[in-house]
């Protein structure tokens, strides 16, 4: 899979403050790429550089193998975190204006808008002013405007904020569909559950540096902690617990079960074959529950940030 967007050692300084320090990312074509990081890490700066809103001090960005130029603006659709629309302008006019700024002709924009308005069943909003819409409704317009010109690269910064769960799902489905139609998506968020659901690649930026990147599954494998969630049934709980603690690190666990179980997270100190753990446990008690603990994006996020 070749990369649609590549940033090479991009740095940006504001006075003495370094917003980005030699950050490189590579966004594969057709992927949903999660750009993660705590507040103030430099995500927005990187996104703005990709959008040519700010220029990097060092490094360069390639889109589709070419150095980023102003013509590429029409290949990118950007939904910023700080977003809004002209409040006293009518929905239709505004959407047409923003589409034309992206280089579409008026007629083109109009027919594409009709398609989306129909899809979202919001045709009657056309003549309304933005200030007459609710926040979620305005967000929908904003989403449409972002994807309207069918860009190769879509950049969403916290796209779900302001949406109720139903609308958030609708948007999620749209993002999936856009990807199937060939778009590549960069997705920046703090909400790790949506990272799990959407992203197949991630990069983590912390204090202006990239600290982690790669396919989400690979990263999860890297972060697996050799931990297993187990539920045991035994008469002599104390003795069994002691025996397990001699070999493994043991933590209490929470999960639902039918029996009055001994619920534990059993963590091996080094890499271990799950079969070994399981056979050890079966020799001590009846095993009702045995699951390898897969690190969540959330765990990976917190763990990486804490280690730096």
């Amino acid at each position: 899979m070749s990369a649609l967007l590549e940033a090479n050692l991009v740095s940006k300084h504001y006075g003495n403050f370094t917003a980005l320090n030699k950050v490189s990312i590579s966004v594969p074509k057709g992927s949903i790429f999660g750009l993660l990081g705590p507040n103030g890490a430099g995500k927005t700066t990187l996104i703005r550089i990709i959008n040519q809103i700010t220029m990097p001090d060092e490094g360069e960005v390639h889109l589709d193998g070419q150095i980023l130029r102003s013509e590429h603006i029409r290949d990118i659709g950007y939904l910023p975190e700080e977003r809004g629309l002209y409040k006293s302008m009518k929905v239709g006019e505004q959407a047409l204006y923003l589409a034309q700024l992206k280089g579409m002709t008026k007629a083109e924009a109009k027919s594409r808008l009709e398609y989306w308005f129909k899809k979202f069943e919001i045709q009657d909003w056309w003549g309304k002013k933005i200030q007459e819409l609710s926040k979620g409704q305005a967000q929908k317009i904003q989403f449409i405007v972002t994807v309207l010109h069918q860009p190769k690269l879509l950049i969403f910064d916290e796209p779900f904020s302001g949406f109720d769960p139903i609308n958030a799902n609708q948007i999620k489905d749209e993002i999936h569909q856009l990807r199937e139609e060939g778009a590549t998506v960069i997705f920046s968020t703090h909400r790790m559950e949506s990272v799990e659901e959407l992203c197949d690649h991630i990069a983590l930026i912390h204090k202006s540096n990239k600290v982690l990147d790669g396919p989400l599954l690979d990263i999860k494998r890297e972060f697996k902690s050799n931990s297993f969630e187990v539920g045991l049934v035994t008469e002599q709980a104390d003795t069994v617990l002691k025996q397990i603690e001699e070999r493994f690190k043991v933590l209490p666990a929470q999960f639902k079960s039918l029996n009055d179980d001994l619920k534990l997270v059993v963590k091996s100190h080094e890499a271990v074959n799950p079969n070994e753990v399981l056979s050890f446990l079966t020799s001590k008690a009846q095993v009702n529950h045995f699951v390898e603990v897969v690190p969540s994006a959330n765990d990976i996020f917190i763990q990486t940030i804490e280690n730096h």
């Binding site: 040519q52 809103i53 910023p80 977003r83 629309l85 923003l98 700024l101 405007v145």
Partner: peptide, 10 residues
């Protein structure tokens, strides 16, 4: 109105 970033990305 926070539209500015949308505009200057174009």
């Amino acid at each position: 109105s926070r539209i500015i970033e949308v505009i200057i990305s174009s």
